[in-house]
Write a protein that binds this DNA or RNA. Sequence first.
DNA 1: CGCGCAACGGCAACTTCCTGCCACACTGAC
DNA 2: GTCAGTGTGGCAGGAAGTTGCCGTTGCGCG
Lengths: 212, 212
Amino acid sequence: MSTVVPNQIVRSEEALFARTAHLFAAASEVSCAADDLNTWATSKPRPRPQLHGDKRIRKMFRPGVLLDPRSAAHLHELDQVGVDVRISPDEINETIILDRRIVILAGELVGATREFRVFDSSDVARSVSTLYDAAWRVASPLRTYDRSFAELRALAPRLLEVLASGSKDETAARELNLGVRTYRRRVAELMTALGASSRFQAGVRARELGLV
Amino acid sequence: MSTVVPNQIVRSEEALFARTAHLFAAASEVSCAADDLNTWATSKPRPRPQLHGDKRIRKMFRPGVLLDPRSAAHLHELDQVGVDVRISPDEINETIILDRRIVILAGELVGATREFRVFDSSDVARSVSTLYDAAWRVASPLRTYDRSFAELRALAPRLLEVLASGSKDETAARELNLGVRTYRRRVAELMTALGASSRFQAGVRARELGLV
DNA sequence: CGCGCAACGGCAACTTCCTGCCACACTGAC
DNA sequence: GTCAGTGTGGCAGGAAGTTGCCGTTGCGCG
């Protein structure tokens, strides 16, 4: 294959989509990582009918996405059609690798749109793949991970609502018909899912993921 | 003037802009309220050269916008060219009133875009104006308000950064070369500015305003 | 200089939040 | 039925965050 996409910077998701869509269609191996589903690679409601046996797609997300019922459902759909979905406990920058050759890395946020760096180099791809694979190994398959997650997700919307309303634990617990102890357990689980170590951080993350 | 814009729902900011831009140009009295500057009415970098003596523009915002250096600068620019800018201590839905006749109210967020309701009725305008005026009276003029705000704004970016990073007050204070007491004072001021009563809520608000 | 003023930061008392421990209730397997 | 496993919620002790108080410091002004 010739160098279809030279090493370059792409200035927006739309541009990235326009320029690389054909690569995705053609690729026999797609690996990607993202924090949420608000990216072109994942948001397109295009659950391909069924994957060919020789096409392998791996997607890796943070636990936080599972807090959103719609996102979670989308991931299960993907899983259903043969996409390999895993949940990573670690923070990971948005990354896409195609056929161990093309690499797309998310870069700076310029204004409201994000820049992307596109590399067409098997050297770069090899390096990045190593890292990706390492992260992949410690990530858990969606189904395993999500088994213990369904209940929290069911509660999450209301939980986030009371949290975002600024109520104290005492009143919030009453609101949700929970004991204070249990309420705080839920909050702790939520924070773990969001990878947050303070409530302020949790608030930021929740908002980032569009959960509030 | 005939009914240029019938009572209707407009589905996005772009559509709203397209349909009502001419009204803004023609209006001799414009009153608006918004939580932040990420709206079409305010984001357009179009600080009109100078207002005519007979055109009055009032804009009302929440204190939070002053935490962003760029937003604050923009507001002062507006103030400079004769726009009447005030800071409201109360939560206010996005509202625009033109010539006591046309009213635009922000509605539901559908997906990623916001809907707006446009009314062309002096009855509606009269009612809404009453409410607007009441809020306007308790709001403080930008210059008065911002006098005591400049220092906090200077610190805000770093403050928000350590908060969003999830550090404890102890380490955060050290990071910023502040005593813990002073650090917490700043956090308290920040939360007041954001209208938040819990750190989670503050995190959400900060993210909403694009401060982190 | 002395004075007033505002910001700082330590201290302390208080509230809110976090978490381990444990008794209790419920459920499913046997 | 017993039993183990799981979720709940009270309690307690500690960590983190909030706030008033007050002595100290630094700055401008007369």
